[in-house]
Design a protein around this nucleic acid. Structure first.
Lengths: 194, 194
DNA sequence: CATCCTAACTAACGGTCGTTAGGCAAATAT
DNA sequence: ATATTTGCCTAACGACCGTTAGTTAGGATG
């Protein structure tokens, strides 16, 4: 039998919170909201979790660790820049599309973290950004890439990948691998007919 | 004398609200916050504005109208797709960089609008998206562009343009025109060395 | 001088927030 | 059979929310 779909209460709470945080934002989601979705009282949530922010922390750091883990693994492969880039984009998009709710929260709600979590989070994000920055730099050094401004190019790529939640639905005709493939194509070759 | 920098209270309130809504989000910004920044009591705000949401409405629709106005003007120029695309991106980025606070609120906080404003807003956004969609379609028909998936390409472009607030600072070395120029270059030709 | 207007104030409204304390019934462990 | 743990409940805490009412000081207008 595959891993059971029935989750324990703690997992249910996290699942519901992810969904509500995504839909209404962290600040606009109350504990009574989350509880209501599960058919219990707000106070009952505290039998399973420590605080509202703890849920946010879990979401943010769980995903941050996934991104960093995947980047560490890719780095160890010692691939040429172009191929590393292709695989990195594919991995990133895979993580996002497999965690649609979490990733929206991860991308937009992290600022509600309190210290020291906020600083830790920013550091992890910086590390991940550097992974991509180094891919671009390596590509330029290998003379595979032609890039005018690192920072601009980096954020064009990140923004495009991280905007997926604005339009992607798992039921649509485009599947994650194809999205990655086509995005890589746009990033590498643009949309101009040659 | 240039237009005075001193604003009346209503303008001051809007200015402060834009800034706080951007920094902390709409839901996490209280009227007492806004008032505090201006050195007055929360209740005093209501001598100048109708409600908290009215401020949000003003921000969202002001910017939506700017985007639509610019797209209408460009459409009337009857340019070839590639040139229209270049100018459209430049205009979009110009509006965003000239309204950094507003545009972040416009992009991320519109969901807190109540009906019927929410539906109106979504419609305006759809209209603007269609403007871009038609540029891409025209480009393909003129055989200037080569595009696998309209929707994906459209949102890659939008996400990249709308992610500018994540990294852009007016004091940085990259100015809006250069950003537009380089983004267009990436969109059209990609980053691969030919 | 008398009147009106403006922009602020204080006080308070009903409501919601995250969270804690304490209790109780059912499930589990001994 | 008894003891313990679990998972919920109700009640409530103090804080803060957006907003309204009523007032007041000061400046502009007649």
């Amino acid at each position: 039998m595959a891993t059971s779909i029935i989750k324990n209460r703690k997992q249910q709470i996290h699942h519901t919170a992810k969904n509500l945080f995504r839909e209404r934002g962290y600040a606009a989601t109350s504990m009574r909201h989350i509880a209501g979705e599960l058919g219990i009282e707000a106070a009952s949530l505290y039998s399973h979790i420590k605080s509202k922010e703890e849920i946010l922390q879990l979401i943010c750091f769980e995903l941050a660790e996934q991104f960093l883990k995947s980047s560490d693994e890719l780095q160890r492969k010692k691939l040429p820049a172009k191929e590393l880039f292709r695989q990195a984009v594919t991995e990133h998009i895979s993580i996002i599309t497999q965690n649609m709710d979490s990733s929206v929260v991860f991308l937009h709600e992290w600022r509600h973290l309190s210290e020291p979590f906020l600083s830790d989070f920013k550091l992890m994000r910086k590390r991940y950004e550097n992974f991509y920055k180094n891919i671009l730099k390596a590509g330029v050094e290998e003379k595979s890439f032609q890039i005018k401004d690192d920072k601009l190019t980096l954020f064009v790529i990140f923004s495009a990948m991280n905007g997926i939640h604005e339009w992607f639905t798992p039921k649509g005709k485009l599947q994650p691998e194809e999205i990655a493939e086509q995005m890589v194509e746009v990033f590498l070759n643009g949309i101009l007919k040659k």
